[in-house]
Simulated assay, not measured.
Amino acid sequence: MRVVLDLFSGRPNPSFRLAPNEVAELAARARALSVPSAAPAVPQAGWRGFIVLGDGLPGFEPIWLRVKEKVVEMQGGAWQDSTGIEALLDTSARRHGYGALLDEARKRTNSGAAL
Rank of each mutant, 00 (worst) to 15 (best):
L115Q: 05
G99L: 09
Q75G: 11
P62M: 03
N110R: 15
E73Y: 01
D81M: 09
R66A: 11
G112K: 12
M74H: 10
G97I: 07
R106K: 15
L57I: 06
A41V: 02
L53D: 04
L18Q: 06
N110D: 14
D103T: 14
W64E: 15
W79K: 04
V52F: 03
E86F: 10
G99E: 14
F8E: 13
D103W: 04
L26C: 07
A19D: 08
D6I: 03
A78K: 06
L115S: 06
V67T: 08
V42M: 05
A19E: 11
E61D: 10
D6Y: 12
L101Q: 04
L102V: 13
R11C: 00
E104K: 14
V4K: 15
I51Y: 04
A45L: 01
E73N: 04
L65M: 15
I51T: 07
L102D: 12
R94N: 03
G77P: 08
H96W: 10
F60E: 03
E73R: 10
A100S: 14
V52Y: 01
T91P: 00
A39E: 07
A32F: 05
G97L: 08
R94L: 02
G99Y: 10
G76Q: 14
A24D: 01
R17N: 05
L102K: 11
S37N: 13
V72I: 12
A100G: 12
Q80M: 11
R48Y: 03
A27G: 02
G59C: 13
G56V: 02
S15L: 03
Q44E: 10
T109C: 06
V23F: 01
T83G: 14
L26N: 06
L88M: 15
L53H: 07
S37P: 03
V3H: 02
P20L: 06
P62H: 02
V42I: 10
A28E: 09
L5G: 05
L53C: 05
I63D: 01
S82Y: 09
E22P: 05
V52A: 01
Q80S: 09
G97P: 06
F60G: 01
W79Y: 14
S37Y: 08
A100Q: 15
T83E: 14
A38E: 13
A100P: 03
R48M: 03
A105M: 06
P40V: 05
G99F: 07
Q75W: 06
A27I: 03
I85G: 08
L89F: 13
L101K: 01
P62R: 06
M1F: 09
V23W: 01
L89P: 08
V52K: 03
R48A: 06
L7E: 09
K68E: 09
L7M: 15
R108V: 05
P12F: 02
A24T: 07
A113N: 11
V42S: 05
E69I: 00
D103F: 08
A93T: 12
R94A: 10
A39K: 04
L65C: 11
V71R: 14
W79S: 09
T109V: 07
A24V: 08
K107G: 05
L18F: 03
F50A: 01
A114K: 04
G46V: 00
